[in-house]
Design a protein around this nucleic acid. Sequence first.
DNA 1: CGACACATGTAACACGTTACATGATTTG
DNA 2: CAAATCATGTAACGTGTTACATGTGTCG
Lengths: 181, 181
Amino acid sequence: MSIRNGLLSLLVDGPKYGFQLKKEFEEATGSFWPLNVGQVYTTLSRLVRDEMVTEEGGGDDTQKSYRLTERGRDDVRAWFSTPRSADTLERDELTIKVALAIATGQPHVIDLLQAQRTEATGVLQSLTRRKARLEPADLSQAIVLDAAVARLDGELRWLDLCEARLRQTNTHNSTSGGRTQ
Amino acid sequence: MSIRNGLLSLLVDGPKYGFQLKKEFEEATGSFWPLNVGQVYTTLSRLVRDEMVTEEGGGDDTQKSYRLTERGRDDVRAWFSTPRSADTLERDELTIKVALAIATGQPHVIDLLQAQRTEATGVLQSLTRRKARLEPADLSQAIVLDAAVARLDGELRWLDLCEARLRQTNTHNSTSGGRTQ
DNA sequence: CGACACATGTAACACGTTACATGATTTG
DNA sequence: CAAATCATGTAACGTGTTACATGTGTCG
């Protein structure tokens, strides 16, 4: 729902048209998640379907634009004021991967952890470089970078923890990749 | 693709049937992400379509089961050995929300941050309690909990950072919720 | 003129998700 | 016997994603 809500929230300060929404979304998030233009239009048509926005203009001379309905405005308000629900944490691919690697007794779990660590470290460096080039005024882009850095940082510490747990379990056990059955 | 790959990887040590896959997936991930049984079957049928697994049995007496094909085995290998690609970080709803709240000049960003902080703290506590109850042998469940804790931990530190950045920017500016345009 | 950015859209498909129908088997 | 668990599946829909078609304006 991130894109849907994101586009919706960009409409709070007045009607806008499709292409503009793409650019503003990417600018706000530092082009971190490039947005296919086509998706903007598919999403907008779904928002029209759900009566969150209305189409306006689109005649020969006037530019077509999308305006928030009252319901859409409520939706944005709700989105901004409701924290991510507690019971269902976001599914994290890496976590699942490692968990299943252990559960199914994959032989090279340590290698997998190491590969992820290398990858994360590399990305972290490129983020740091990018952060240095950032204008101080780009607040929203700065916090997006901060978020990515924080996440990767946590990921690295988690990977270390995983390896520690694995080595601890495997100490003086059979060869490796022990399956607890 | 987490579920698809997850189910696939559970089939590496021999054929299994649907219900069993659901239970094993949930056990491996500590029932953290409950899996609707129906989804197991839809996913399995798509895996059959893609020739990743084959159906076996299903007659009157024999139990139907799913067996990995060679292609499926390759897929699992690739999944376990390929780190999450660098260029596209996972889209994070919270990050987008905060970034857009700032970019669109929402008036109560600080409240939003505070709400998320409260939520995260609560979940963190429940995770800690759950971690204490865990059997030491449940390695895969332990690392899933570790991952969730690490993520929330990072999230809290990020939220603090956001607030600091906001206060810094807003110091001696107009009222609040300044839009940089 | 040719390349590039601007601009709008549609068709097709992917995975994830839930609601529902159906029946066998176990257990209190 | 009733309830719970085991077990299988389908229909319908949601969002996200890409590939493609199409056209205008601008700038070197």
